[in-house]
Design a protein around this nucleic acid. Structure first.
Lengths: 356, 356
DNA sequence: CTGCGATAAGAGACCGGTCTCTTTACTAAA
DNA sequence: TTTAGTAAAGAGACCGGTCTCTTATCGCAG
């Protein structure tokens, strides 16, 4: 004798109007919370709505109003704690202003990123937050901007695209981290990053299409050169895109006779894999090799020794880029802002003097 | 002389139809990829669409078709790597079938969960995946089900709600982990979980409204009792909901004279905080206290010593719950399935004999 | 040469809201 | 008593697609 589970078409304003014996317009006014309605009518419509279990169709609502209340977010990889934390910052800021978030991840692939943007635009999100995976091909981002939908960039700036952007002082951070290693006596320092390039071999800065990574490498090289290191670009390693790739890369790098005495990792996921490789090879930190990584991931404080990190304000990064976007969504027009948040080095125990 | 950045209203099928000199219906057939159209007309409509930079309005499309191509996901906490990984599994499965994902997190609060469900239903998602934060109040989940929209549960079963569910063998896993500790000689074992309850004091299984946690505690208690432990429920600690709370709880627990010689942590976030507290108190693992945690989080392998864990197939959990849901979305009707995935214990170095 | 079926294109209703414009009823000022 | 003014409710267009139903055209068999 149980009720048939479904098949009951969701109720509409027209259904409620009929039940309450008012016009569709009046019912819509009550249910939509706009216009003027007498208290008596309001009560009876509300009662009818409750009785019928009316739930508004946000889709229909969005179509007429043109606003969906949704912010689209395209990140490189949700699994990377850096992004999960940033997304949390975005979500919190969005929720506080009554917006919701649709998440899509690009896997750092430009084609996936384009598809995601197309999809979100199609869903008529009110605005987008993107971590652009490339600076070469940004036509899809131009399109967003051109279509009048606000766009904001997270963690990675694009010189050619003048929109709200929140990044950290990547170059500065890389310089300081490198100086820490140089100060400890290192001259053979490797920089390991996920960015893919043809040949996995670093040649030139212009080959790096991810702005944050380019900044970091630039800072790294600059600090190395200032310390008189010869051709530091030899020690930039690209292509740590997966744990396997990173493992292979690290293994190859550490088995080499002229192996680095210190490593600077571009994110915590890479650092973890490098740490694993170091352990596996029976080497010790910081005795055999020193390590610094970007992102103060939660685990970096509990290893033995704990890892010295570049602490990025990740949550704030997400929170403020969302706030910038929302400000614009609310109609405030102002010139695009480029926020650069400061980082700090947290000194732990993973840096020591070089040991050849 | 630059073009005005926006204000150009997005083009519609009607615009394209006009430009191509065909009827709206014909243009729609081409652009929507349905119906029959001659090659000549198809070409001219496609050309017109490209010229006008037409982009379909998915909102309008969803409204008439009734399908949005979106799966709504409500998880407890995106920041917890357990959930990020599960979400990744969901996303991958969804993408493979042409679905997209809207993510909302409840913060394990029932009110936020209800709001999220209401929102997603309003957005007319095609189906929902939820990790119910409570088994007491599930009217909102009943509503989903009743409205005919498929619902699937992730990680937590609800006995009263007969829908597709994917969980792991929590009770079994807890028993095995507890037995490992008991086998090492421990009789004073603490179980620490995030679940909140009035008074933070464990009294009764019926007080635990999160099914997975209840299962685990049940298994833990059962294994303890089998080993002749007296009143093991004394050692169940609730309320590790934030890092601060966990820290406080752990600190209090470890400073107590009759402190546990081993700890079983309900997730990796809790374990990390417990580990920090242990270190901070100058205690050592496993000499002073043994530790096992649920979830083989990436960091558990790199601490000294590495942590023995209960390895849950988290990605598969997400992937298969999404597949179950999608199967139903595609119209296949079958009785609700309750999948229980197996776990395994990965023995590392965090368990040793008790040391009073 | 007529008629039938198949194919291609057009006309217009519809989805479920919002919103403008119009109508109605009632109060208050002239 | 007439009239202006206002508050409240109704009628119906509209958003941008989909989809059914109708109409026009063409080939081919009888």
């Amino acid at each position: 004798m149980t009720k048939v589970p479904s098949s009951a078409r969701p109720k509409t304003v027209a259904d409620v109007a009929r039940a309450a014996n008012v016009s569709k317009a009046t019912a819509a006014r009550v249910l939509g919370g706009y216009g003027v309605v007498s208290d008596a009518i309001r009560a009876s419509v509300t009662a009818a709505a409750k009785a019928l279990d009316y739930r508004p169709n946000e889709l229909a609502r969005s179509m007429t109003t043109g606003r969906s209340g949704i912010i689209g977010v395209v990140v490189g990889d949700i699994e990377n704690p850096f992004f999960s934390l940033a997304v949390r910052g975005i979500s919190d800021a969005a929720k506080a202003s009554g917006f919701n978030v649709i998440l899509a991840n690009s896997g750092e692939k430009i084609e996936a990123e384009k598809a995601a943007v197309r999809l979100l635009i199609g869903k008529r999100v009110d605005g987008l937050i993107v971590t652009p995976s490339e600076s070469r091909d940004i036509t899809h981002l131009r399109d967003i901007h051109r279509s009048g939908r606000p766009l904001a960039l997270l963690d990675r700036a694009l010189p050619d695209l003048d929109v709200d952007t929140v990044t950290v002082d990547d170059r500065e951070a890389a310089i300081r981290a490198t100086q820490v290693l140089i100060g400890a006596g290192h001259r053979n320092i490797a920089y390991v990053t996920a960015v893919e390039a043809n040949g996995h071999e670093y040649v030139d800065l212009r080959q790096i299409y991810t702005s944050s990574v380019r900044e970091r490498i630039d800072g790294f090289l600059s600090a190395c050169r200032d310390a008189g290191v010869d051709r530091p670009e030899r020690h930039v390693r690209l292509g740590a895109t997966s744990s396997e790739a990173t493992r292979r890369l690290a293994d190859e790098m550490l088995s080499h006779p002229g192996r680095p005495t210190a490593i600077l990792a571009s994110d915590s996921v890479i650092a973890l894999e490098i740490l694993r490789t170091i352990r596996q090879r029976g080497m010790r930190i910081p005795d055999d090799v020193s390590l610094i990584t970007f992102h103060d991931a939660d685990w970096t404080g509990v290893t033995t020794p704990p890892i010295t990190v570049i602490d990025q304000p990740v949550y704030a990064l997400g929170h403020s880029v969302a706030e910038l976007l929302i400000r614009r969504l609310k109609g405030q027009i102002q010139p695009p802002e480029r926020l650069v948040l400061p980082t700090a080095i947290i000194t732990r125990g993973s840096v020591g003097p070089p040991h050849p």
